[in-house]
Design a protein around this nucleic acid. Structure first.
Lengths: 221, 221
DNA sequence: TTATTGCATATTGGATCCAATTTACAATAA
DNA sequence: TTATTGTAAATTGGATCCAATATGCAATAA
């Protein structure tokens, strides 16, 4: 047939649109911890009824991003420093395994793309962009592993601590240190040294954990 | 006050009841892979409207237990052998770490309770019970770690492959082999040998993976 | 026969309404 | 004042209704 087949972009459901928007706002810290999510307030913001809002909130709760009590509503989840620390440890177990599996499967395109993000991260002057570029760099390397279940679990863990990671990058030496470590990881991957890439990744995560915990305890005592 | 304080068992919401029931039925294989979940059919079964059913199905989807397409409904997720294999690998990364962390934190009660499940598993003659006792044994040991985020992730992974694990235990040497390995893990924990417990756990999982994959490929080719 | 079209039915997504519960606050009593 | 009680408003959970889409089948044309 002479017509080009065009992907009719089936507009997502209202519930999905609201879910994505709330997820982004919560992850990036736009809504603060403990803040309540009022169903009809959100419904008005999206010009829908409360039904898709409730579905979005339910899905967020399954990911641990909000906590809700019957008849009392949902609030954005907060993390104690021990909970945050455990999630870093979780990442420190999974991510070295994933990158080790990924290194022998990385293509030239993978490495070029990762290097692009790595350098963009280095050059970027807007702190609001650091968090995204950081995640894109790591995700590009990890994606080569093809371990979709692992990747989803890592993504969920990152979502839970994303606002802390962003705060961390703004700290005195957070950005420059992350940048140095990214460069080392990138180079290990380019050399095909899976063991080194895995160990550097582990230390990258545990270092971030320790510096964050130190920071949190210096604030709250 | 002279009255005993009694926990008024606040009846769970309809959505939660339906969610739990569907989750159990899917995990245990009572509903077969690919089977559609009709909203009003389920609603009639629970004497509710479709609203709580939809919420339950949405939550199941977030856990990967069902897949749904817009206007087409939800079906029970199926797993390819490569997907199943990856989930075993995922467990093989996390569970040794968790038990290693748990061993020095195990109390006499922990060990006694685990030994109870271990022996009950050994004695049990009803294959329908094997799956539960197997999970209870491991969960008892893991719980001592206090790593709640890890435990949730492991639980989610187990839910995805539970029906295969159950099938596996019924295979020729599945039950007796699992039993031997449980005994060794139990003894390592009682000796306080965290390294050994972790390594045995790793082999326990990878052995199950290999035997399952072998079995699946012998069926489907 | 075989493929295609059109329509009736089935099913899901969302809006609106009502019920159940919590929360805020005023009224009252110690 | 301070604690307690009662009531109204706010909020969530669920039921019912309508809209949007998919599915199955009969009718038709090649």
């Amino acid at each position: 047939m002479p017509l080009e087949s065009v992907d009719i972009s089936k507009t997502a459901s209202a519930a999905t649109i609201i879910f994505d928007a709330l997820k982004k706002a919560i992850i990036e810290g736009e809504i603060e911890e403990g803040a309540p999510l009022r169903q009809d307030e959100i419904a008005r913001m999206f010009n829908t009824s409360r039904i898709p809002v409730r579905e979005a909130i339910l899905r967020l709760e399954e990911h641990g991003l909000v906590r809700s009590q019957r008849y009392k509503g949902a609030v954005v989840s907060s993390l104690s420093s021990t909970e945050a620390s455990e999630i870093f440890d979780f990442r420190a177990v999974l991510e070295p395994h994933v990158i080790h599996h990924a290194v022998p499967r990385m293509t030239r395109e993978t490495l070029a793309q990762a290097r692009g993000f790595c350098e963009a991260f280095h050059r970027e002057t807007d702190p609001m962009q650091w968090g995204d570029l950081n995640r894109q760099f790591h995700a590009t390397l990890y994606d080569a592993s093809g371990l979709t279940y692992h990747l989803e679990a890592i993504d969920g863990a990152l979502n839970r601590i994303d606002r802390y990671l962003r705060a961390q990058l703004v700290l005195s030496r957070g950005m420059s240190r992350a940048n140095d470590e990214h460069m080392q990881i990138q180079e290990a991957c380019e050399r095909g040294d899976a063991d080194k890439a895995a160990e550097l990744t582990r230390q990258h995560i545990l270092g971030a954990r320790d510096s964050l915990i130190l920071h949190l305890s210096s604030i709250t005592g």
